[in-house]
Amino acid sequence: MSNILRSFLYRLGAALIVMIGISMLIFAIARVMPGDPARIALGPNATAEQVAALRLERHLDAPLPVQYWEFVKSVATGDLGKSLYTNRPVTTDIAQFLPATLELVFVSGILMILIGLPIGILSAHYRGRFPDHVGRLISLLGVCTPAFVWGVILQLVLGYFWGWFPIEGQLSQSVTAPPAVTGFMLIDMALAGNGAGFLDALHHLILPALALAMSGLGQTARLTRSNMNEVYERPYVEMARAYGFPGRRIAMRYGFRPALIPTLTILGLEFAAMLGNAFLVEKVFGWPGLSRYGVEVILRKDLDAIVGTVLVIAAAFLIVNIIVDILVNIINPRIRLAAGRA
């Protein structure tokens, strides 16, 4: 067990190094983008003195390494700087917008697993037959169609024509938002004991989550299918068949379980990729999330906000990957036992 801990610490260290690299990169990129952030923030009517004063206040004229050092010092105290646009601390902005994105991505991840894995399993189990053809079609469409197109299609069909789901936003207008305790709509609704509000929030969440999940869902189904088909060639599956084990047992224990190990790694990457894809979906569904905020601040060249948003998303990405690595270690007895023995 101690070795799993050691590999966890190792990954954590690696993640930290990646974070430092990303922060340098985004810090530099944000500053070489064309346009004067102070001018953009203050608008065309500001005087040259006002612009100069803002540049001075934000150390914008200092050399890059000096600026970066200032930035590192403030990050160490938990301060990500101040948005030039909202004029609030970047951490406040992120705290406001991040939960909606995390909620969306998390529910998408669940849909991806709950829909993608069974499709893959059925495809492999009924290889070359009808369920396989349907499964492959769905996964191909999922992988090939961008998330925002899915968003529009789902909005049109399920939202507009059939009217099963709301088209936009996090809540119906008739529903009042719960007091923000965690920032997560579903959790806050539950904490407020507002059952109807919880259902309304969930109702709003399903379409954007599904749109965001489609690509990962397709990828998951494809991988599960191909990994399982590979496992089906192994002698232990032949043995299970020779003994006449029930079909479901062969599929789940002898086919799916060994196939899950390589699938899970990719699944983690897909999950993390959703963080990046979330922007377009948030845009289509008017979802008040961090990705939308991120693009707005980029367009406004809002330096601290850009860097802060990118770092938070990168951190979320890395955390998801570490969790997946640990899960893979735990379900793979070969790794788990090797770790225990050494």
Binding site: P235, Y236, Y254, R257, R334
Partner: peptide, 12 residues
């Protein structure tokens, strides 16, 4: 089977 080790499921 020919190869006993690969005829046993490695995940349980």
């Amino acid at each position: 089977f020919q190869d006993p080790t690969s005829a046993l499921n490695p995940t349980f």
